[in-house]
């Protein structure tokens, strides 16, 4: 169990050693986002913008236009919110090579409360043309994704978490932007999940198997571009989908999957996520339970969707 932000910080240092073009920017949160590791080894290539996220994203755009590869970090609320229009205008519109790696996504931010919990960042970033949007499940996938985005030319938003999460990708797996992975076969329904909900879906599938329901688990580490083929294949072969994300059910993974199946192969879908509400203070565990982001809730959603599928 490690936090995805820890995997990010470590991989960033490796990238810094391999590629002198990599620069890193942060907004007074380098200890929390883990870019402090890079800052320590490469002080010349680290820029602390202070508490000034909009300016930070603008500077990153300029650094990219000038030929550097900027990785920019702060909390997800501030990256996707405070600096939204700089991301849209200065970096996505011109398709500049800036990697926004936003930590502390979702409700597992915990005690800081709803003001600090981004429940809409994936939706916001997904709506921006040219953006690639990633949400890895665990440490190893994050490390692979950071390498993949460094090799990719163009703007990327990657959402990482604060808390430690269980490892899903125990075997080293290369990260391919735009490709999901089927982590468990199944015929009765498919869990389509992202971020830390993938581990919950795997646990839910185990529970369902005891009751004779055979659930497939498809993890999408890329929210955009969505792996349309994998989603439609799941719709065709299992006839029912449950999406799950640590995010609002509006506009993120659930929204994206519904758009794709509605157009391509309509089947019943249940969306698990925050139901159009903000978060609040509490421990990460308490909040996941309070908002129904647990294996138990996924089991119930699976049972509901299977009943819907059986309705004449």
């Amino acid at each position: 169990m490690i936090a995805t932000r820890d995997a990010y910080g470590q991989t960033l240092v490796e990238l810094g050693r391999e590629n002198p073009s990599v620069v890193v920017l942060d907004a007074d949160l380098s200890g929390s986002t883990k870019t402090a590791l890079f800052a320590k080894e490469f002080p010349q290539r680290f820029f602390n913008a202070g508490i000034a996220e909009a300016n930070m994203l603008g500077m990153a755009a300029g650094l990219a236009a000038g030929g550097q590869i900027p990785f920019v970090s702060t909390f997800a609320v501030f990256a996707s919110g405070r600096a939204f229009e700089q991301i849209r205008q200065s970096l996505a519109y011109p398709r500049l090579n800036v990697k926004v790696v936003a930590t502390h996504g979702g409700i597992t931010v915990g005690e800081d409360g709803g003001s600090h919990q981004s429940v809409e960042d994936l939706a916001i970033m997904r709506a921006v043309p040219n953006m690639v949007v990633l949400c890895p499940a665990d440490g190893p996938e994050t490390a692979a994704a950071v390498r993949a985005v460094a090799a990719y030319e163009g703007p990327v938003y990657m959402r990482l978490g604060r808390s430690k999460v269980p490892t899903v990708f125990a075997e080293p797996t290369p990260f391919v932007i735009g490709k999901g992975s089927c982590l468990r076969p199944g015929r009765d329904l498919t869990f389509v999940t992202t971020g830390l909900m993938t581990a919950q879906a795997l646990a839910a599938a185990e529970i369902l198997a005891e009751g004779g329901i055979d659930a497939r688990v498809v993890h999408l580490g890329t929210i955009k571009p969505l792996d349309v083929d994998l989603v439609l294949q799941a719709a065709r072969e299992t006839g029912a989908l449950v999406t799950a994300e640590e995010h609002s059910v509006i506009g993120g993974l659930g929204g994206a999957v519904c758009e794709v199946v509605a157009e391509g192969y309509p089947v019943p879908v249940e969306r698990v996520g925050l139901r159009d509400v903000f978060g609040q203070s509490g421990t990460a565990e308490e909040l996941l339970a309070y908002y129904g982001l647990t294996a138990a809730e996924l089991v119930e959603a699976a049972q509901r969707v299977v009943r819907k599928k059986q309705m004449p």
Binding site: D112, G113, G114, S115, H116, Q280, S281, G282, E286, L287
Partner: peptide, 8 residues
């Protein structure tokens, strides 16, 4: 959780 005294 549930307190009126939020983190912020």
């Amino acid at each position: 959780l549930g307190s009126h005294l939020q983190g912020h």
